[in-house]
């Protein structure tokens, strides 16, 4: 069952119907609005922004920021998660620190990052990194805890060194579940990046959307909104496909935070 390949015609009726309804309503009322635009206008603005390259450039900025932040945050989180999963005393000693720091909403650090780095790439990285570190840590830790204990016994019997134990036993065994964590973190990184751009950072898709909306170009603003949705959907779809492709049946694990 591949959700991307299998399309139920009944599911198409609602979105298509809504678009047609919005178009006719806008035409009939001769819509003059600073906030809404007919779907045809959204489509035209979207195509125009795509062809003149501004939308693609903004997409590149957003994705670059999201993924470099993700690289930092996920690597740190995964590393800590592996250590905490392998060494129980460490896990217990850091318990309070993790539980206290984790619920800090990532946007609360926005002004801090703004103060330290000013506008630009670095402030966005740092927030995305903070936001993705915790799911990476928690899910890697539970992935390690879910490893078949006999594998760890084998590694002990073979007297593997710590690095050999981590790279030959622990990571391969926990990889399917770590990948689920990565999939989740990719989604989070994109959401956080757009959020940072909407609120403060003058770059990327979020800022473009804000700019178009404040410049009274509702068609363009909504085109960016649709584009962000499509991007999120596509990125998630790619991750789902990669997961199935790479891990097959082992991929059928659910992540829950």
């Amino acid at each position: 069952m591949n959700p991307l390949m299998r399309i139920d015609p009944r599911g198409v009726i609602l979105p298509v119907g809504l678009i047609v309804l919005a178009e006719t309503a806008a035409r009939l009322t001769n819509l003059q609005s600073d906030a809404l635009a007919p779907p045809s206008d959204i489509l035209l603005s979207g195509i125009k922004a795509l062809t003149d390259g501004s939308m693609l450039y903004a997409t590149w900025q957003t994705l670059a920021n999201a993924f470099s932040g993700l690289a930092i945050g996920f690597t740190l989180g995964m590393g800590l998660g592996i250590l905490m999963g392998l060494f129980h005393p460490l896990n217990r000693l850091l318990e309070v620190t993790v539980e206290v720091l984790r619920p800090i909403p990532s946007v609360a650090l926005l002004p801090v990052a703004l103060l330290v780095y000013g506008f630009g790439h670095r402030m966005e990285f740092s927030i995305v990194a903070f936001a993705t570190l915790w799911p990476a840590l928690i899910l890697t830790r539970s992935a390690i805890a879910g490893i078949e204990p006999r594998l760890l016994e084998v590694s002990r019997a073979l007297q593997l060194s710590l690095s050999a134990r981590i790279f030959k036993i622990v990571i391969p065994a926990a990889l399917p579940r770590i990948f689920v964590a990565l999939r989740l973190a990719v989604g989070i990184s994109l959401i956080v990046a757009v959020t940072v751009e909407v609120t403060t950072n003058p770059m990327g898709l979020g800022y473009k959307m804000m700019e178009a909306s404040q410049g009274l170009q509702p068609g363009l603003a909504l085109a960016y909104l649709v584009w962000v949705g499509m991007l999120g959907w596509a990125v998630n779809g790619i991750m789902v496909l990669a997961q199935k492709h790479l891990f097959g049946a082992a991929a059928n694990v659910e992540a829950r935070l």
């Binding site: 198409v12 959401i191 959020t195 804000m210 909306s213 959907w233 990125v235």
Partner: peptide, 23 residues
């Protein structure tokens, strides 16, 4: 009928609707 539409809307970051909501 409604499920696929919900799946389509799900990955949309909530903060992305802020400009629309402000307008």
């Amino acid at each position: 009928y409604i499920g696929p539409t919900l799946e389509l809307m799900r990955p949309l970051p909530a903060s992305a609707v802020v400009p629309l909501a402000i307008a």
